[in-house]
Design a protein around this nucleic acid. Structure first.
Lengths: 156, 156
DNA sequence: ATGCCAATGCTATATTGTATCATCACTGTT
DNA sequence: AACAGTGATGATACAATATAGCATTGGCAT
C-alpha cells in the first residue's frame, strides 16, 4: 500500500469518526493535493481529476469539496496564493495545532510546521491587548525553498 | 489641517525623498483608505473616487496606484481578504517593522501592530530550520474586533 | 418501493486581477 | 512657444478565482 493511499485511509477513518463520508470524488481531490505536495488552485484540481480519473468535476463541486475537506481539517487554504494544500498531519493522530505555512514563491512547494506554544501565546497576547478576538490563527509566509533559492541566487 | 491631510502630507514628503511623486489620483486612493480605516478592495476604491471626487478611475489604474503605494510602503495588501489597507506608520517616522495585521472578519476594520523582536526571531528560526528563506514577513490574522465580538456573542 | 437528505451537477454571474496598447501631462531643452 | 522624452493614466479585453441558486442524483432507513 503506497503512502498516499495510507494517508487517504487515515482521512477516511477520521471522517467516519465525525459522522462524515469521504466520498470517491472527495478522495480524488485530496489525492491530487497529496500527490503534488504543492499548493494547487481549485481549477488545477479540476484539470487533475479530468486527466487522472476522466472525471469532469465542475469547479463548483471542487470548491464544495475543498470546503468540506477544510472543515475536516484535511486541507488548508493558503490565502497568500489563493490555493489549497493537503494538511501534513493527517496521519500523525491529526491533533491540529496552529500552523505556520512556508510557501515557496517560486515553485509553490509548501511546508507546514507547527508553531510553538510560546510564540502562539505571545501572538495571542498581542491580539488581546489590541482589543481583538482571534478567530482562526494560521500563518503564511512567502519564502523560497532551498532549491529555488540556490537557483535564483546563482543566476543573479 | 485635519489628521488625514497631515498624513497625506507626510506621505507626499516621503515619496519625494525617494524621487517619486504622490499625484492627485494617488492621493485620492490613499485618502479613501485612510478615511475608511478599513480594508478596501480595488473596486471599492474605484467607487469611492467616483462618489467623492467624481473621478472615473478605471480599475486598472487603481491597481497600478495600489502597487505604487505598496512600493512606497504607504499601503499593505491583505491577502486574507484580498483587500488593501493604509499603513499605520506613515506619520511616525515610518520605519517599517514586521507587521501583524488583525482583521475583523465582520466589519473589516484593521489594526496593524508591530511584532516583537523575540517572536520574529522565533518565527524566522522556524523558517531557517525548515530549509526555507523568508521573503516578506507579514502576518495576518482573522479576528473579531471588540464591537463585532460583543454583537455576535449577544445574538447567539 | 418510498421518501429523505446529503452530495453533486449545471448555469450564470460576481469579484479580483492582468495584459496590451494608446493617450495624456509634466519636465526640461532649445 | 514648440518639441521630445518619460512616467502616469485611459481603454479594452480577458484571465483567474469564487459564489448564488436551483435541479438532479444516489445511498440509506423505513
Amino acid at each position: 500500500m503506497n503512502s498516499i493511499q495510507s494517508i487517504i485511509d487515515h482521512a477516511d477513518q477520521s471522517c467516519k469518526e465525525h459522522g462524515e463520508k469521504l466520498t470517491s470524488k472527495r478522495k480524488q481531490v485530496l489525492s491530487g493535493l497529496l500527490k503534488s505536495g504543492r499548493a494547487m488552485s481549485a481549477y488545477e484540481l479540476v484539470d487533475y481529476c479530468k486527466k487522472e480519473f476522466s472525471e469532469n468535476l465542475p469547479a463548483m463541486s471542487v470548491y464544495r469539496i475543498l470546503d468540506f475537506l477544510q472543515q475536516e481539517q484535511l486541507v488548508h487554504k493558503l490565502n497568500l496564493a489563493n490555493k489549497f494544500v493537503a494538511c501534513s498531519h493527517i496521519r500523525c493522530g491529526h491533533v491540529h495545532a496552529v500552523s505556520q505555512f512556508l510557501i515557496c514563491s517560486s515553485c509553490q512547494k509548501v511546508k507546514e510546521i507547527s508553531i510553538t506554544q510560546e510564540v502562539l501565546e505571545e501572538l495571542q497576547k498581542n491580539v488581546t491587548d489590541a482589543g481583538y478576538h482571534l478567530q482562526s490563527p494560521q500563518f503564511e509566509m512567502n519564502c523560497l525553498c532551498d532549491a529555488c533559492f540556490s537557483a535564483s541566487s546563482s543566476c543573479n
